[in-house]
């Protein structure tokens, strides 16, 4: 398969009213790879996902998706290039049924060759297609976000805290799901706080602090890196 990165960002910068939330972040994701994005609260993880997915325009820097320049593209344009995301606070179409939630994405994205019910099944929502999204609990809504993202047939998937709030017996299934998505050739960037889950799912990690990537490497190395330790344990 093509060896070029599925997602490449370089020098990505975003400021809000003069204050930098991201200060020149570089990152590469390859197909089949799960990268964990770590960092304390306010370090810029969600901002990074928002900028990559087109919710915010970058102030500077470049985003490439599957070899195409996607800098400053609108979300729907990025979806067409093969990128999607989930939200930290899930945002399903609350007044639509689960099947309709997925159906909208199937119609407008790149057809992944699966039906609504197959995708719901894959995300652990099988048999709930006729329920309204607003009747789901928050962990189910997160999985619905994921199902909607998958329905657009993404090559690159940004997953913002899928495991947070999940019950223990749900975590293994979620980890297996994410590994399976990568094994099928997708590139995943996963924001997560639960270290056990990160260890289970990711191949390597990137650590953000104050909007800058201060570390990239394996989770083992990260836990021994003095800068990372300082950021997480406080100075």
């Amino acid at each position: 398969m093509d060896d070029s990165p599925a997602l490449r960002i370089s020098g990505l910068t975003r400021s809000f009213g003069g204050l930098p939330a991201l200060a020149g972040v570089d990152l590469e994701l390859r197909r089949g790879e799960v990268v964990g994005l770590l960092g304390p609260n306010g370090s810029g993880k969600t901002t990074l996902i928002n900028v990559i997915s087109g919710v915010y325009r970058p102030t500077a820097g470049r985003v490439e998706v599957m070899g195409h320049d996607a800098t400053g593209s609108a979300p729907e344009g990025l979806v067409r290039l093969g990128l999607n995301r989930t939200f930290q606070t899930p945002r399903p179409f609350r007044t639509l049924t689960l099947r309709e939630n997925v159906s909208v994405a199937l119609r407008h994205g790149r057809n992944p060759g699966q039906s609504e019910d197959e995708i719901l099944q894959l995300c652990g929502l099988g048999g709930k297609g006729n329920l309204l999204a607003e009747s789901l609990n928050s962990s189910e809504q997160k999985r619905l976000d994921l199902a909607r993202a998958l329905a657009t047939g993404p090559d690159v998937l940004l997953v913002d805290e899928l495991a947070a709030g999940m019950r223990h017996d749900e975590l293994d299934g979620a980890a297996e799901l994410l590994r399976g998505l990568a094994a099928a050739g997708r590139a995943l960037l996963v924001v997560e706080h639960l270290m056990g889950f990160v260890r289970q799912v990711t191949h390597r990690v990137v650590v953000l602090n104050a909007g800058a990537a201060i570390f990239a490497g394996s989770l083992e190395e990260a836990s021994q890196d003095p800068r990372v330790v300082e950021v997480f344990l406080g100075a």
């Binding site: 919710v55 609108a74 979806v79 999607n84 994405a105 407008h108 909607r148």
Partner: peptide, 8 residues
């Protein structure tokens, strides 16, 4: 926003 993320 979610609609845009669904490609609409």
């Amino acid at each position: 926003l979610s609609a845009r993320m669904a490609g609409v």
